[in-house]
Design a protein around this nucleic acid. Structure first.
Lengths: 404, 404
DNA sequence: TTGCTTTGTGCCCCCGTGAAACAAAACAGG
DNA sequence: CCTGTTTTGTTTCACGGGGGCACAAAGCAA
């Protein structure tokens, strides 16, 4: 009997790593690509030519004003006219759609506001429709789609487990709904085209590839948007999602045993001690309903941190608790870099020294070790991260772009 | 100019995965190996023949009494006469040396007792000497060496950071000393031959490869020996060591805000709330100096758990706190299996239902999810784990065994 | 101009692996 | 006992990714 393999051929095996190097900006020239891949110049040349032929990168042989000795190397870059992926994000106040090319370049973006309804199909239908308009306007080819949601997403089911500040029911099958919307809009062909994940996780992935997390081997991200706190870990360039996608749900670390009660049944959780509402209440402000809690907290810091001692004390309180939570995570995960987002990013800006001091004192082995704690650096990093996830199949095997 | 690669040739690339499959018992026959590797029978045959030629595995074509239809497949097994690695373990009461073949088979072992001195060269010299005697007696070839120590080992320095119940100074360069002892004994050739790591981490690795952790995608291990608590995470078959080898130092998770003070400055840490001393004191026993605290705690459970309500209450107390700590880890790491070692293993045996109940209630998303919490299953799992680490280069590239 | 250095390219070969046809070793049923 | 079926091992051929090498190209330095 004849014998067929179960796994498909992967084509030129250096193709994926090469594209990833150009994608993340680590291979600006063909010579660097040769060194990074650890192959000969001949192979690197063939690989670069093939990626160029696929329309993914450009190989520019114009003089690069190198200034160095020897023959100047050809410059490599992401093809700005190449295919894009559709990135979508759902948040408390609405949604946002974008087209994102390789290299994390946001080609076009379209915000949408308005209340999110209980049925995920409503907002996902709207955001996919917005994405379709962007695609039609741009005339670009779409090779994937990714969705960021403010909830843990269970794998392999693709369900939103705790969409606490959306009216969705826990367990909503967001990935399936997203895929159906894509298929209805005529965007995707394959049934497994369209991925969904937690927004903080995706933001961490984006920061690692294109932002402040570049080069980190173990990147820990913690961020708070409107309510609750999210965490993410990127290990060796890949999201650490745990066995079912629920890793780094850090909101219920205890950071104050006598703190405020939390809906989880415990008290003093990171969730309720360091989110925007916590800042407003610690400063003695009554939150208004007009704008989001995050905006209220940010403007409070901006306008009154230096003027009002009560606001400063409130920030100190949050920073102390945040640092305690981070210290616990550091002792468990041992990251080499920490990135803070949302309100936590601003707390770092205003009160960074205090945060680093407490963190250093409470992390067991952080004494001799210098810790990099940085603010996140990308606009819409969740959106870019959703695009990263959508690009991943192409990064793994660039030949897929020609299959459709 | 001629061009040489920076990375060496890796030879037949399916060789490493194939050896790992036989090593972990997942490829009992050549037919299974073919399926697991996802290659053709021709390739699997060539690979098996090559591994046999290297003296690493045996290919037995004798009838296997299969009972199934079709031509019986050749049985694959680790070659019991093949090379070994030297595994060493240092603990509070002394040391242990062993020769370990592929498949985690302990070929020979030699315990050594006596107080450990302040200079790591003393006990490491003794354990290496014991290993050398075992090697001479057995006449086997040694292709690597691994060391397990009761302390976090920082990478890439290879220093013991917190050897709390050894008289070593924190920061002792155990890996360097180990390598020097190996070189002095004429065992190792290469300068980077000889690895060292934390004993609980190594135990977890061993359990994943050969014990109760087989097949787990995200394996969390927690264990307590004499004093303090250690943790480890194995992700996709590899130890998650963090950026500097300090991940999973879980001893200072807070599990009782009003608990006993800990030397770290906090109170109610997992370390001081769930170790053997905590059990003895919770049961109102005064620990004696004659045998190790672990033995005293184990015998207390064995002899009086069913007889003395105070002992039962003490066990309950420890189990509650252990479950709280595990729940925190579950929310951060999202493992699919948990293995407990040392005293915690016995607590699981005596009080497993209570532990699972508390763990389920406190782990946020554990409600619908059935959690596997198992006792560790290997004797000397730290020793076997040290051997695993030493075998790793050969598992990555089996051709190395012929280079020496 | 003549080196020197670094990079790109063409050519040849190695070798790992798939594809296919065939052989071998069991069982099942007459 | 013989034959068909099933599963596995073996042989042969061919493809293709990538190394090795020689040479050409493109800059700087003297």
């Amino acid at each position: 009997m004849t014998q067929t393999r179960t796994r498909p051929d992967r084509g030129r095996s250096a193709l994926g790593p090469a594209l990833e190097l150009v994608h993340t900006g680590r291979a600006p020239t063909r010579a660097v690509l040769t060194a990074e891949l650890g192959v000969t110049r001949a192979t690197a040349g063939a690989v670069a030519a093939e990626l160029q032929g696929l329309g993914l990168i450009t190989v520019d042989s114009s003089p690069s004003t190198a200034g160095a000795q020897g023959r100047p190397s050809h410059r490599l870059a992401v093809d700005p006219t190449g295919p894009v992926v559709l990135a979508a994000q759902v948040h408390t106040d609405g949604f946002r759609a974008a087209l994102v090319g390789l290299g994390g370049r946001v080609v076009a973006t379209a915000p949408g506001c308005g209340p999110v309804e209980a049925d995920p199909a409503q907002v996902l239908g709207e955001v996919v429709a917005a994405g379709r308009r962007l695609l039609e306007e741009s005339g670009r080819r779409c090779v994937g789609a990714g969705l960021a949601v403010p909830s843990a997403v269970a794998e392999p089911e693709g369900t939103a487990l705790n969409p606490l500040h959306l009216p969705w029911a826990p367990g909503a099958p967001v990935r399936e709904v997203f895929r159906r919307c894509l298929a209805d809009a005529g965007i995707s062909a394959g049934a497994d085209d369209g991925v969904a994940a937690n927004d903080v996780n995706l933001g961490a992935l984006a920061e690692h590839r294109h932002g402040a997390g570049r080069g980190a081997r173990q990147l820990l991200c913690v961020a708070t948007g409107h309510r609750g706190v999210g965490g993410a870990l990127v290990v060796d360039g890949r999201l650490h999602s745990g066995s079912s996608g629920l890793a780094l749900e850090v909101g219920h670390l205890t950071v104050d045993p006598e703190g405020r009660p939390c809906h989880c049944g415990s008290r003093g959780c990171l969730d309720v001690e360091t989110d925007p509402l916590a800042l407003l209440e610690a400063a003695g402000r009554r939150p208004g309903p007009e704008v989001s809690l995050l905006r209220q907290a940010l403007s409070l810091l901006r306008t009154e941190y230096h003027a009002d001692p009560a606001v400063r004390a409130a920030a100190h309180r949050l920073v102390d608790r945040l640092a305690l939570g981070l210290a616990g995570l550091v002792n468990i995960l041992d990251p080499d870099r920490i990135i803070l987002g949302g309100l936590h990013r601003e707390l770092l800006r205003y009160d960074g020294d205090r945060l680093r001091e407490v963190l250093d004192a409470r992390s067991l082995w952080g004494r001799g070790k210098t810790f990099a704690v940085l603010p996140c650096s990308l606009d819409h990093n969740s959106l870019v991260g959703a695009a990263e996830l959508a690009w991943q199949p192409v990064l793994d095997d660039p030949l897929r772009v020609q299959e459709a």
